[in-house]
Amino acid sequence: MPGVSAFITSIVRNFEDRNDILQDTAVAVVESFEKYDPAYNFTAWAIGIARNKIRNHFRNKPFLQTGFEEDVIDAITTAFEKTSEPNPRLGFLNECVERLDARSRELCDLRYKSDIKPAQIGQKLGMTANSISKSLLRIRERLRECINLKARQAGLTP
């Protein structure tokens, strides 16, 4: 459920929390599958369940903040529901990650494998949080350029 997973990330951001909520959502989807109406978009239905799980998650961990008001989360939910088909361009991402230079890969490992934020990465590498943040932004932009290029080469329309 890549769309559901991305939706959860958009609200909770922390990958460990994302995995917990995704797991709870998957269990709830299986348990309540008989209530699913096939006329309705499946991912949108699962996103609805995920949103409830996110609410529960934040209720149980009040020290966590979503950061967004409900009306913003409504807009985000709608966007994910309407783009519920997996983006075929993301299929090229693995290939593009393989082409990252060693330094970029190291930053990605720290950010995504260790799930640590730029300030902590900066402390670890002796760099400023701002410089780490800029580098991460550039890495994602390069990856976006790479998947767009590969999509064009594969004849995928924008």
């Binding site: 890549p2 769309g3 997973s5 991305a6 939706f7 990330t9 958009s10 990958f15 994302r18 807009a75 985000i76 709608t78 966007a79 994910f80 309407k82 783009t83 983006n87 993301l90 991402l93 693995n94 990650v97 990605c108 490992d109 995504y112 494998k113 994602r140 990856l143 976006r144 998947i147």
Partner: peptide, 21 residues
């Protein structure tokens, strides 16, 4: 809605990148 879609696309890449790494 276009802004929300753009946001969703950026999150999707970030999220998928985390899965791959």
């Amino acid at each position: 809605p276009e802004n929300a879609f753009f946001f969703a696309e950026e999150v999707a890449l970030h999220n998928h990148l985390a899965d791959i790494i």
